[in-house]
Amino acid sequence: MARLVVNGESREFDAGSDMPLLWALRDHLNLNGTKYGCGAGLCGACTVHMNGKAVRACQVSLGQAEGAEITTIEGLDPNGDHRVQQAWRELNVPQCGFCQSGQIMQAAALLAENPKPSDEEILSAMSGNVCRCGCYQRIVGAVRLASTGS
């Protein structure tokens, strides 16, 4: 039996401690906003927050996640109006949209830790999140917008 605190809620379900958090969220908790992209911590599509830090859910086992506070895209803001989400919508960032949950979670964690990042800090923080459609220019713009309001 696995036990997790996700989006402020305590959840218990039948899974082994070696199961990656990603598959627990998707297959057992019906939290499908967290996406599978590579399974190797290389693309960032499964980025969630663990105790406020951005982690790749495919690289965190349930054993490691137990006792931690996990936040997924579904729990980032009760109304979906986190300033990063708002900035994303204002700049029409997504194309296909598949990587965007991970991008938004990465950006939100960056701004929580460093509210006024430099451009270089934004680029560095976001470089683990792949967007094959190529929305990077708007992603960087949206992180800046969420940070500075412009």
């Binding site: 998707r26 939290l31 499908n32 906003g33 967290t34 996406k35 599978y36 997924t72 895209i73 579904e74 979906g80 989400q85 994303w88 919508r89 029409n92 997504p94 949209g97 598949f98 965007q100 949950s101 938004i104």
Partner: peptide
């Protein structure tokens, strides 16, 4: 789909 995409609600194949 902009709002659904930015809130994780958009439905893809998986």
């Amino acid at each position: 789909d902009l709002h659904d995409i930015t809130t994780g609600k958009a439905v893809y194949g998986g």
